[in-house]
Protein backbone atom coordinates (compact mmCIF):
# COMPACT_ATOMS: atom_id res chain seq x y z
CA UNK A 1 0.00 0.00 0.00
CA UNK A 2 1.27 3.45 -0.92
CA UNK A 3 0.40 6.27 1.46
CA UNK A 4 1.04 9.97 0.83
CA UNK A 5 1.11 12.19 3.91
CA UNK A 6 1.02 15.92 3.12
CA UNK A 7 2.68 18.05 5.78
CA UNK A 8 2.98 21.77 6.35
CA UNK A 9 5.91 23.56 7.92
CA UNK A 10 4.36 25.95 10.46
CA UNK A 11 5.28 28.10 13.48
CA UNK A 12 5.25 26.16 16.75
CA UNK A 13 1.94 26.48 18.64
CA UNK A 14 3.63 28.50 21.39
CA UNK A 15 5.21 30.98 18.91
CA UNK A 16 4.51 34.67 19.27
CA UNK A 17 3.42 35.82 15.83
CA UNK A 18 4.91 39.02 14.38
CA UNK A 19 4.76 40.43 10.87
CA UNK A 20 7.39 42.25 8.83
CA UNK A 21 7.49 46.04 9.22
CA UNK A 22 5.60 46.56 5.94
CA UNK A 23 2.97 44.00 7.02
CA UNK A 24 3.48 41.90 3.90
CA UNK A 25 4.44 38.59 5.51
CA UNK A 26 5.17 36.62 8.67
CA UNK A 27 8.42 37.70 10.35
CA UNK A 28 10.13 34.32 10.86
CA UNK A 29 12.88 35.63 13.17
CA UNK A 30 12.86 33.85 16.51
CA UNK A 31 10.11 31.49 15.37
CA UNK A 32 10.61 27.75 15.68
CA UNK A 33 8.97 25.75 12.88
CA UNK A 34 7.39 22.34 13.35
CA UNK A 35 5.32 19.74 11.53
CA UNK A 36 1.76 21.10 11.49
CA UNK A 37 0.03 19.43 14.49
CA UNK A 38 -2.93 18.23 12.39
CA UNK A 39 -0.50 16.55 9.96
CA UNK A 40 1.36 14.86 12.82
CA UNK A 41 -1.79 12.90 13.66
CA UNK A 42 -1.98 11.88 9.99
CA UNK A 43 1.66 10.81 9.87
CA UNK A 44 1.24 8.70 13.01
CA UNK A 45 -1.92 7.11 11.55
CA UNK A 46 0.09 6.19 8.43
CA UNK A 47 2.74 4.56 10.65
CA UNK A 48 0.02 2.54 12.42
CA UNK A 49 -1.27 1.30 9.03
CA UNK A 50 2.26 0.45 7.93
CA UNK A 51 2.92 -1.53 11.11
CA UNK A 52 -0.41 -3.39 10.88
CA UNK A 53 -0.41 -4.33 7.20
CA UNK A 54 2.72 -2.99 5.49
CA UNK A 55 2.94 0.25 3.51
CA UNK A 56 5.34 2.71 1.94
CA UNK A 57 4.93 6.19 3.36
CA UNK A 58 5.85 9.26 1.33
CA UNK A 59 5.75 12.67 3.03
CA UNK A 60 5.23 15.73 0.86
CA UNK A 61 5.59 19.43 1.54
CA UNK A 62 5.11 22.40 -0.75
CA UNK A 63 7.75 24.89 0.35
CA UNK A 64 11.22 26.34 -0.06
CA UNK A 65 14.53 24.68 0.95
CA UNK A 66 14.12 26.02 4.52
CA UNK A 67 11.33 23.46 5.08
CA UNK A 68 13.59 20.42 4.52
CA UNK A 69 14.40 19.96 8.25
CA UNK A 70 10.67 19.48 8.82
CA UNK A 71 10.59 16.78 6.11
CA UNK A 72 13.71 15.16 7.63
CA UNK A 73 11.93 15.10 10.98
CA UNK A 74 9.01 13.25 9.38
CA UNK A 75 11.52 10.77 7.92
CA UNK A 76 13.10 10.38 11.36
CA UNK A 77 9.68 9.62 12.83
CA UNK A 78 9.29 6.79 10.31
CA UNK A 79 8.27 7.93 6.81
CA UNK A 80 10.18 6.13 4.02
CA UNK A 81 10.77 8.93 1.54
CA UNK A 82 10.09 12.63 1.12
CA UNK A 83 9.14 14.99 -1.67
CA UNK A 84 9.49 18.76 -1.57
CA UNK A 85 7.61 20.68 -4.21
CA UNK A 86 9.66 23.80 -4.64
CA UNK A 87 7.40 26.83 -4.20
CA UNK A 88 6.33 29.37 -1.62
CA UNK A 89 2.85 28.14 -0.68
CA UNK A 90 0.87 31.38 -0.92
CA UNK A 91 -2.33 30.26 -2.64
CA UNK A 92 -4.27 27.09 -1.70
CA UNK A 93 -5.48 26.27 -5.20
CA UNK A 94 -1.95 26.43 -6.62
CA UNK A 95 -0.63 24.25 -3.78
CA UNK A 96 -3.46 21.76 -4.38
CA UNK A 97 -2.68 21.64 -8.12
CA UNK A 98 0.98 20.88 -7.42
CA UNK A 99 0.00 18.06 -5.06
CA UNK A 100 -2.51 16.78 -7.64
CA UNK A 101 0.25 16.67 -10.29
CA UNK A 102 2.48 14.64 -7.96
CA UNK A 103 -0.33 12.18 -7.14
CA UNK A 104 -1.17 11.71 -10.84
CA UNK A 105 2.46 10.83 -11.58
CA UNK A 106 2.57 8.27 -8.74
CA UNK A 107 0.09 5.63 -7.58
CA UNK A 108 -1.21 6.25 -4.05
CA UNK A 109 -3.91 4.26 -2.28
CA UNK A 110 -4.41 6.76 0.50
CA UNK A 111 -3.69 10.49 0.78
CA UNK A 112 -3.71 11.88 4.33
CA UNK A 113 -3.58 15.63 5.01
CA UNK A 114 -4.24 17.51 8.23
CA UNK A 115 -7.64 19.22 8.01
CA UNK A 116 -5.89 22.60 8.16
CA UNK A 117 -2.52 24.17 8.81
CA UNK A 118 -2.20 26.32 11.92
CA UNK A 119 -0.59 29.19 9.99
CA UNK A 120 -3.07 30.24 7.31
CA UNK A 121 -5.99 28.17 8.66
CA UNK A 122 -7.43 27.75 5.17
CA UNK A 123 -8.84 24.24 5.45
CA UNK A 124 -8.85 24.30 1.64
CA UNK A 125 -6.08 22.13 0.16
CA UNK A 126 -7.33 18.60 1.06
CA UNK A 127 -10.83 19.15 -0.41
CA UNK A 128 -9.30 20.75 -3.51
CA UNK A 129 -6.92 17.81 -4.08
CA UNK A 130 -9.87 15.40 -3.80
CA UNK A 131 -11.97 17.52 -6.19
CA UNK A 132 -9.18 17.78 -8.78
CA UNK A 133 -8.68 14.00 -8.73
CA UNK A 134 -12.39 13.10 -8.39
CA UNK A 135 -11.62 11.03 -5.27
CA UNK A 136 -13.72 10.41 -2.13
CA UNK A 137 -12.94 12.94 0.64
CA UNK A 138 -13.55 12.87 4.39
CA UNK A 139 -12.82 16.06 6.32
CA UNK A 140 -12.45 16.46 10.12
CA UNK A 141 -11.64 12.74 10.11
CA UNK A 142 -11.35 11.30 13.64
CA UNK A 143 -11.24 7.60 12.83
CA UNK A 144 -10.08 5.54 9.86
CA UNK A 145 -10.14 1.79 9.20
CA UNK A 146 -8.62 0.36 6.03
CA UNK A 147 -9.91 -3.04 4.88
CA UNK A 148 -8.27 -4.17 1.64
CA UNK A 149 -9.41 -1.80 -1.09
CA UNK A 150 -11.98 0.08 0.98
CA UNK A 151 -12.18 2.27 4.06
CA UNK A 152 -14.59 3.33 6.76
CA UNK A 153 -14.08 6.75 8.29
CA UNK A 154 -15.55 8.67 11.20
CA UNK A 155 -15.87 12.45 10.87
CA UNK A 156 -16.84 15.29 13.18
CA UNK A 157 -19.83 17.21 11.88
CA UNK A 158 -21.59 20.17 13.56
CA UNK A 159 -22.98 18.85 16.82
CA UNK A 160 -22.07 15.20 16.27
CA UNK A 161 -20.40 12.54 14.16
CA UNK A 162 -20.92 10.76 10.85
CA UNK A 163 -19.58 7.45 9.56
CA UNK A 164 -18.77 6.93 5.88
CA UNK A 165 -17.46 4.15 3.62
CA UNK A 166 -15.72 4.39 0.29
CA UNK A 167 -13.29 2.58 -1.96
CA UNK A 168 -9.62 3.55 -2.16
CA UNK A 169 -7.90 5.70 -3.18
CA UNK A 170 -9.32 8.44 -0.97
CA UNK A 171 -8.27 11.76 0.54
CA UNK A 172 -8.50 12.42 4.29
CA UNK A 173 -8.43 15.76 6.14
CA UNK A 174 -7.47 14.49 9.56
CA UNK A 175 -7.22 15.71 13.13
CA UNK A 176 -6.76 14.42 16.68
CA UNK A 177 -8.77 11.22 16.93
CA UNK A 178 -7.12 9.64 13.86
CA UNK A 179 -4.69 8.68 16.58
CA UNK A 180 -4.53 9.94 20.16
CA UNK A 181 -2.14 12.56 21.50
CA UNK A 182 -0.28 9.86 23.48
CA UNK A 183 0.36 7.93 20.22
CA UNK A 184 2.40 10.78 18.69
CA UNK A 185 6.09 9.90 18.33
CA UNK A 186 9.28 11.81 18.74
CA UNK A 187 12.27 10.79 16.63
CA UNK A 188 14.78 8.49 18.34
CA UNK A 189 18.52 8.52 17.61
CA UNK A 190 18.30 5.61 15.15
CA UNK A 191 15.48 7.34 13.31
CA UNK A 192 17.46 10.57 13.08
CA UNK A 193 20.51 8.69 11.72
CA UNK A 194 18.56 6.76 9.07
CA UNK A 195 16.58 9.86 8.04
CA UNK A 196 19.81 11.39 6.72
CA UNK A 197 20.08 8.76 3.99
CA UNK A 198 16.39 8.39 3.08
CA UNK A 199 15.48 9.88 -0.32
CA UNK A 200 14.25 13.49 -0.46
CA UNK A 201 13.25 14.47 -3.99
CA UNK A 202 12.62 18.02 -5.16
CA UNK A 203 9.90 18.55 -7.77
CA UNK A 204 8.78 21.64 -9.64
CA UNK A 205 5.58 23.44 -8.77
CA UNK A 206 2.51 24.52 -10.69
CA UNK A 207 2.61 28.27 -11.31
CA UNK A 208 -0.08 30.92 -11.11
CA UNK A 209 -2.30 31.95 -8.25
CA UNK A 210 -5.88 33.09 -7.79
CA UNK A 211 -5.55 34.94 -4.50
CA UNK A 212 -2.90 37.17 -2.95
CA UNK A 213 -2.24 38.32 0.59
CA UNK A 214 -2.43 42.12 0.63
CA UNK A 215 -1.28 42.58 4.22
CA UNK A 216 -1.14 41.09 7.69
CA UNK A 217 -1.84 42.74 11.02
CA UNK A 218 -2.11 41.73 14.63
CA UNK A 219 -5.52 41.94 16.33
CA UNK A 220 -6.07 45.10 18.39
CA UNK A 221 -4.81 44.70 21.95
CA UNK A 222 -7.46 44.18 24.62
CA UNK A 223 -7.94 46.91 27.21
CA UNK A 224 -7.17 45.92 30.78
CA UNK A 225 -9.41 43.36 32.45
CA UNK A 226 -12.11 44.65 34.82
CA UNK A 227 -11.86 42.60 37.99
CA UNK A 228 -15.02 41.95 39.98
CA UNK A 229 -14.67 40.85 43.63
CA UNK A 230 -15.55 37.19 44.15
CA UNK A 231 -18.32 38.11 46.60
CA UNK A 232 -20.03 40.47 44.10
CA UNK A 233 -21.01 38.06 41.34
CA UNK A 234 -24.19 40.12 40.82
CA UNK A 235 -21.95 42.97 39.60
CA UNK A 236 -20.57 40.68 36.86
CA UNK A 237 -24.12 39.87 35.74
CA UNK A 238 -24.89 43.61 35.63
CA UNK A 239 -21.78 44.36 33.53
CA UNK A 240 -22.56 41.52 31.11
CA UNK A 241 -26.06 42.88 30.65
CA UNK A 242 -25.56 46.65 30.69
CA UNK A 243 -21.99 47.20 29.54
CA UNK A 244 -20.95 44.42 27.16
CA UNK A 245 -24.58 43.55 26.27
CA UNK A 246 -23.63 39.87 26.18
CA UNK A 247 -26.76 38.62 27.95
Amino acid sequence: MNILVCISHVPDTTAKINFTADGSALDPSGVQFVINPYDEFGLTKALHIKEAQGATITVLNVGGPETEPTLRKALAIGADQAVRINATPTDAITVAKSIKNHIQANAYDLIICGQESIDYNGQEVPAMVAAFLDLPFVNACVGLDINGGSATAKAEIDGGHASYSCSLPMVVGGKKGLVEEKDLRIPNMRGIMTARTKPLAVEEAEGGGHTAAVSFAKPAAKSAVKLVPADQVNELVRLLHEESKSI
Binding site: N121, G122, E124, A130, A131, F132, D158, H210
Partner: peptide, 23 residues
Protein backbone atom coordinates in the same frame (compact mmCIF):
# COMPACT_ATOMS: atom_id res chain seq x y z
CA UNK B 1 -18.11 28.13 7.34
CA UNK B 2 -19.93 25.26 9.01
CA UNK B 3 -18.46 21.72 9.03
CA UNK B 4 -20.31 21.13 5.74
CA UNK B 5 -19.45 24.56 4.30
CA UNK B 6 -15.75 23.94 4.96
CA UNK B 7 -15.93 21.08 2.44
CA UNK B 8 -18.30 22.72 -0.05
CA UNK B 9 -16.32 25.96 -0.56
CA UNK B 10 -12.91 24.48 -1.51
CA UNK B 11 -14.57 21.77 -3.63
CA UNK B 12 -16.43 24.47 -5.54
CA UNK B 13 -13.27 26.59 -5.85
CA UNK B 14 -11.33 23.66 -7.34
CA UNK B 15 -14.07 22.71 -9.80
CA UNK B 16 -14.69 26.29 -11.00
CA UNK B 17 -11.05 27.41 -10.77
CA UNK B 18 -12.25 30.11 -8.39
CA UNK B 19 -10.57 32.43 -5.89
CA UNK B 20 -11.41 31.40 -2.33
CA UNK B 21 -11.24 33.11 1.05
CA UNK B 22 -12.11 30.86 4.01
CA UNK B 23 -12.25 31.81 7.69
Amino acid sequence: GTAMGKIIAPTLAALTSGALSTN
